[in-house]
């Protein structure tokens, strides 16, 4: 049974027709920001160390030199000010990209996002076309404050959109779509994927629509729903399951809010079994929401219980043995899928 977290680390998963050299997830993000800033002077970038330093993960390297101080704005360590200012800028028609140096720090501007930004369109007809992006997720021994998956706080907030891609192709296409969207979009970038995964990207401009999941692997015995880094782990488990004659269909959610219920329901109506895998902690994770949707809309199709493989309900621990125990892996997914397939 393979132990590594991704099997797709060296190849494309979506089979897109590309050209040239394969690029990393990080490079895909960088390309998206660069190309959007090049295309539209209303796009500006602000965040901690995004300018001179080029961002903690170098996603904005070279942007200051190309676009100047007015468009690439180094900020103080003030997440509420970053989000507030981005929102204010958007009211005059700009499309700011606000970077959280690590997505864990988004908790510092929770009020600004959930009470001000998210409610504006509903309450007073004020769209706020901003993107809040940042590196998220564990598996890199970043410890409890640099490894979080805080997506569900925001999935519970009407008015926001929440995107969490798993491939370089999607990262670039979804980020471009997010920048062009008229709503506030939170864009989570799993840092485990940043340099571990490469893909050849198409030449020229393309977007990937928000709110659309994708079937990464077809199968008939059960459906595994996942996203971000865990999508790769789920694919790895699916390969192992295939050797035992169990064909798992793997769905990559890509956008968590709005959730693409249709793709999930369509698959589960075919396979009659559903396993949700996420790196977020268990209680209140999106697996619970998907379970509820299946009960409401596909109860008669289910041959077994909805199962979930998630991180533990604890903070993300630092020591490698602890973090490995905390995180889901292909082995855990394999075991859960085998159990589910018996129904």
């Amino acid at each position: 049974m393979p132990e590594s977290r991704t099997s797709a680390a060296n190849g494309a998963v979506n089979g897109a027709q590309g050209h040239g050299e394969p690029v990393t997830f990080l490079e895909a993000i960088k390309q998206a920001i660069f190309e959007e800033m090049e295309r539209d002077p209303a796009v500006v970038l602000l965040g901690e160390d995004v300018g001179v330093y080029g961002g903690a993960f170098k996603t904005s390297e070279g942007l200051l030199e190309r676009f100047g101080w007015e468009r690439v704005i180094d900020t103080p360590i003030s997440e509420s000010a970053i989000i507030g200012a981005a929102c204010g800028m958007s009211y005059l028609g700009l499309r700011p990209i606000a970077e959280m140096q690590f997505i864990d720090f988004i908790a510092c501007c929770f009020n600004q996002l959930t009470n001000f930004v998210a409610k504006g369109h509903y309450l007073w007809n004020a769209p706020a076309p901003i993107v809040v992006r940042g590196p998220s997720g564990g598996g890199v021994h970043g410890g409890p404050f640099h490894s979080a998956n805080p997506e569900m706080y925001f999935v519970h907030t009407p008015g926001l959109k929440v995107v969490y891609p798993s491939t370089p192709y999607d990262a670039k296409g979804l980020l471009k779509a997010a920048i062009r969207d008229n709503n506030p979009v939170l864009f989570f970038e799993h840092k485990f994927l940043y340099r571990r995964i490469k893909e050849v990207l198409p030449a020229g401009d393309y977007t990937v629509p928000l709110g659309k999941a994708i079937v990464r692997r077809e199968g008939k015995h059960l459906t595994i729903v996942s996203y971000a880094a865990m999508m790769h782990t789920a694919l790895e488990a699916a390969e192992a399951l295939a050797k035992e004659g169990i064909e798992a269909e793997v769905i990559d959610l890509r956008t968590l809010l709005p959730l693409d219920e249709e793709t999930i329901l369509e698959s589960v109506k075919k396979t009659n079994r559903c396993l949700v895998v996420h790196e977020d902690t268990k209680t209140g994770g999106i697996a619970g929401e998907i379970a509820a949707i299946l009960c409401e809309k596909a109860f008669g199709y289910l041959d077994g219980p909805l199962m979930r493989v998630t991180a533990l309900d604890t903070p993300v621990p630092y020591a490698p043995p602890l973090e490995e125990h905390f995180l889901p892996n292909a082995k855990k997914i394999f075991a859960a899928a085998k159990e589910l397939a018996r129904y």
């Binding site: 500006v44 007015e70 468009r71 003030s78 509420s80 000010a81 970053i82 989000i83 507030g84 200012a85 981005a86 929102c87 204010g88 800028m89 958007s90 009211y91 005059l92 028609g93 700009l94 700011p96 009020n111 600004q112 009470n115 001000f116 409610k119 504006g120 309450l123 007073w124 004020a126």
Partner: peptide, 22 residues
């Protein structure tokens, strides 16, 4: 529009001012 959480408008209006200048 204001919200009930006081102070939030200060960075928002800072952003308005920055965008206006830009």
């Amino acid at each position: 529009s204001p919200i009930s959480m006081l102070g939030d408008l200060i960075p928002v209006m800072t952003g308005v001012a920055m965008a206006g200048r830009y």
